[in-house]
Structure formats: structure tokens, C-alpha cells
């Protein structure tokens, strides 16, 4: 059949590509990468341990780190919050309806967990963990999946000893054989079926978004600011240049916080009107215990308090769920405060 002709042609093409001589002359463009540069970027870790740095971390340490930096999205027990990924559970569900795919039930390689936590997590503050912290968090994720006991310590030395339950659960793409019947010489053109009945309708489920006008712009317009009126004037009209700078800085916060019209609580609370507001008072947001305590003390987010919090969140409030490391530059803090002030 044509499919097999094509396959044969494909193989021939590949052989030609691989066999083609490497061009002798170079363009002489680019420069040599230094070992330090390669070390800074080449961080990926492979199943055989290639790329894994020295280090170690235990379940207990991992549990604390997880509660501080991961639980806000993934839950205290790695069970997942809302639509954020579940990391634990789901064993023996892969052949059921709606399988639960977690590190324990699905991920075939432990290296993938280490690599992903190390390079891509925590969300909004990637590449901020030390190797020992990554080992500890991975140890805790293994523990939360009942794959190790609570005294377990993971290190580069015992890394390859850990067995992943679904390691043998994968096959290489077999569509060209398992679905060979989709290659058809002469597809049916008439009399292909006797009757056509509706078996399911999308309108019954009705989960399609409504079509509405494009979302309102995120930045407050001049008109909005004027409309804010007398109270606004009392604390000073926001400086448009600072507001613009602050909006840029706010990008660092947007992974977790929304602000302005239509803003909703996400990983962090809505920040509309936060400057001057009572601490821990956003409707419907589940604050950490320390933040609740601060709220009960009657604290207010004044400029000074917000600035101190944003500079070093975890020093300002030990136990806060905000995993952000803090804004290093005072100018950035001032700008983001100006931006937040414009979002009343």
C-alpha cells in the first residue's frame, strides 16, 4: 500500500540525511561557549543520572519546604488545589475512566521530577531552590506517594535505586501498525452507513464560553483615575510614569495575583485596592495562619508595611504562603506600590 511505500521512502530519506557529508567549510559565526556558560544553562537531568549534582535531602526537610513553597498550588499533601496538578495518589487508576496521573501513578522516571522541580518550580519563582532543597522536595513527593518511608533521605548516591511504579507503562508510538487500517486505498463514498442518529449534543453540556466584547484593558485609563475622585486626590494622584514602571514590575506578581476589573483570586488574593486596606481582608481567599493572625491584630497595608513585606516576604511574615523571594530594588517596590495605588 501507499503507506508502506511512504515508510520505505521515509527510511531512505533518513539514511540520506544522516549519510550526507558534513559541510567542511563553516561560516565562522558565533563564538565558543565557555565551560562556565555551559554549566549555567546545561541543567537537564536524564534517567541514568546524567546531569544530577551532588546533594541530599530528607522527607522531613522536604515536607517543610513543600508546605512553604509548593502547597499553595499542590496542596499540603501534594493532592492538588483546584485545577493545579495533583502530585500524589492515583495508583492503579490508569486503566479506569479518568485516570489520575501523578508522580506516583504515572511518571516513569524520577529524574524527570528532579529536573522539573529544579528548573521550572516553584511557579513564579523558578530556579530559586538549591540542589539539597530539590532532593528534599523530591523525597517528600515520593513519601506522599507511599513510595518511601518517613526516614528516607534522597541523594545523588541512591537516586537510581528508587523504583517508579509506572516505569514499564509506556510503549513507543505504534500508530503506523496499530492504526494501519486508517491508511485506506479507497475510502467509502456512498452507502457508508444506514442511519445517522445524534448520540450527543454540545448544547446539552453547554460549557462553551460566551462571546463578549474583548476584556477591558488592565491598566487604568486617565478617565478611571479622574473618576476615582476626592479620596484619590487626598492621597495624591498616581504618577503615570511610575504607574507604568510599576506595571512592568508587577509582571513578577502576575503568576499569582490579579488586579483591576474582573480580577479574581488565584494562587494569591486579588490586589485591587490593596494599598491602605486591612490585612487579610480579601473576600474568599484562604490566607495562611500567620496572615490570619496579622489580620486579627488589625494591621493595615500602609505603604511602609507593604514595602517591608515585598522586600522580604518570608522575613516579614514567617509562614506566609507567598513563595516569592522579594523585590531587591527599592525603586521597584516604590513603582509597584504606585501601580497598586492606581488600581483602587
Amino acid at each position: 500500500m501507499s503507506k508502506f511505500l511512504k515508510l520505505a521512502a521515509g527510511v531512505a530519506l533518513v539514511s540520506t540525511l544522516i549519510a550526507a557529508p558534513v559541510r567542511a567549510e563553516k561560516y565562522g559565526l558565533g563564538r565558543a561557549a565557555t565551560p562556565e556558560e555551559i554549566a549555567a544553562w546545561d541543567l537537564d537531568v536524564s534517567p541514568d543520572g546524567t546531569g544530577l549534582p551532588e546533594g541530599r535531602g530528607d522527607v522531613f526537610t522536604g515536607e517543610e519546604l513543600f508546605a512553604d513553597t509548593c502547597a499553595v498550588c499542590h496542596g499540603d499533601f501534594a493532592e492538588g488545589v483546584g485545577n493545579w496538578p495533583k502530585l500524589a495518589g492515583g495508583q492503579d487508576t490508569l486503566d479506569h475512566e479518568d485516570p489520575v496521573k501523578t508522580v506516583g501513578s504515572y511518571w516513569p522516571y524520577l529524574s524527570t521530577v528532579w529536573d522539573y522541580v529544579n528548573r521550572s518550580m516553584p511557579f513564579g519563582n523558578a530556579q530559586s531552590l538549591t540542589p539539597d532543597e530539590v532532593y528534599a522536595i523530591v523525597a517528600y513527593i515520593l513519601y506522599s506517594n507511599d513510595l518511601v518511608d518517613d526516614s528516607f533521605e534522597l541523594s545523588n548516591e541512591n537516586f537510581l535505586d528508587v523504583e517508579m511504579p509506572n516505569a514499564d507503562g509506556f510503549i513507543i508510538d505504534d500508530r503506523e501498525t496499530a492504526e494501519a487500517h486508517f491508511w485506506k486505498a479507497a475510502p467509502c463514498m456512498s452507502g457508508c452507513k444506514d442511519s445517522v442518529e445524534i448520540t450527543m449534543r454540545a448544547a446539552v453540556l453547554d460549557v462553551t464560553p460566551e462571546e463578549s466584547a474583548a476584556a477591558a484593558p488592565a491598566v487604568a485609563t486617565q478617565g478611571d483615575m479622574e473618576a476615582a475622585g476626592v479620596e484619590e486626590a487626598a492621597v495624591g494622584v498616581p504618577d503615570p510614569e511610575m504607574v507604568a514602571k510599576g506595571e512592568k514590575v508587577f509582571k513578577k506578581c502576575k503568576a499569582c495575583h490579579q488586579v483591576g476589573d474582573g480580577a479574581m483570586n488565584r494562587t494569591g488574593p486579588v490586589l485591587t485596592g490593596i494599598v491602605g486596606a486591612s490585612v487579610g481582608a480579601v473576600d474568599g481567599f484562604r490566607y495562611s495562619k500567620p496572615m490570619q493572625a496579622l489580620a486579627e491584630s488589625g494591621a493595615v497595608w500602609s505603604d511602609e508595611e507593604l514595602a517591608a513585606f515585598l522586600a522580604r516576604p518570608k522575613t516579614y511574615l514567617k509562614g506566609t504562603r507567598m513563595s516569592f523571594a522579594g523585590l531587591k530594588k527599592d525603586a521597584d517596590i516604590a513603582a509597584v506600590l504606585e501601580y497598586l495605588r492606581s488600581q483602587q
Binding site: 537531568v45 508522580v103 511518571w107 516513569p108 522516571y109 524527570t112 522539573y116
Partner: peptide, 12 residues
């Protein structure tokens, strides 16, 4: 590389 990295996006 001499092997696939088996990153998160090609396994989980």
C-alpha cells in the same frame, strides 16, 4: 545528546 532527556513534557 546520546539519549532522550525524558523531560516532564515528554513523559507526564
Amino acid at each position: 545528546t546520546s539519549q532522550p532527556v525524558q523531560s516532564r513534557e515528554e513523559t507526564s
